[in-house]
Amino acid sequence: MNSAPDHSLNMLVRKLESVAPLSHDERQAIQSLPVMTRILQPGQDIVRDGGQPSQCCLVLDGWTARYKLLSEGRRQILSFHIPGDIPDLQSLHLAVMDHSLCSMTVSTVAFIPHESLRDLTARFPGLAAALWRDTLIDAAIFREWMIGIGRKSAHGRIAHLFCEMYLKLHAVGLADHHRMPWPLTQIDIGDALGLSNVHVNRVLQNLRNQKLIILDRRNLTMGDWEGLSEMGEFDPVYLHLERRAAA
């Protein structure tokens, strides 16, 4: 563990500014939070189901995911998180974790003590409101995923996930021109969207053949944003972004 340089918290500033305006003092207050950074290998647990953390985890680099393990080793991924996200922010107010959080890629994370976050939100109600707004958007994303898993085809679910991750990455400056890093495996996608590996593979091949996506190494280019949006019935309103990506 190392003390993080101040600029690591710029990622949180950038994230919160994508969903709410911040004042100069609020930005300064975030940047002076004490944090400890750690580098994680893929598949490492950050917080476990049932744990009682005393700190929150800010993602600085890489992708993380919330998940729940079921019987017979079945895994349901609940959400994907990118730099700027605090996926376990709920632990600030809910003492016991009701799911786990892990790294999906090599990741750098910064741990912020609960005490410091409580102090920050007491001193800056605007920041408390911004974090609340982020939590509400998190809930909105869950509603969209519920619609997908409950009512959309495999094509629709996967297209929707591509559109959502692109806009989230774009909002924090990590994707542009309909091209984004794509570190997830087919199994990860299946575990998130309730699809078998075979179905995910068929859909991806189909989207490739239709030139809707180009997957090269660990990048995904969306060849037809409109086509994918339509296929996924994607309406970005639920992301409530301050500065919407020019799609």
């Binding site: 078998s196 590996n197 075979v198 593979n201 068929r202 091949q205």
Partner: peptide, 14 residues
């Protein structure tokens, strides 16, 4: 019967 498009799983029964 899974086709060649499934690489490692090709040839298996799904």
């Amino acid at each position: 019967h899974l086709s060649e498009q499934h690489e490692d799983d090709a040839g298996r029964w799904f």
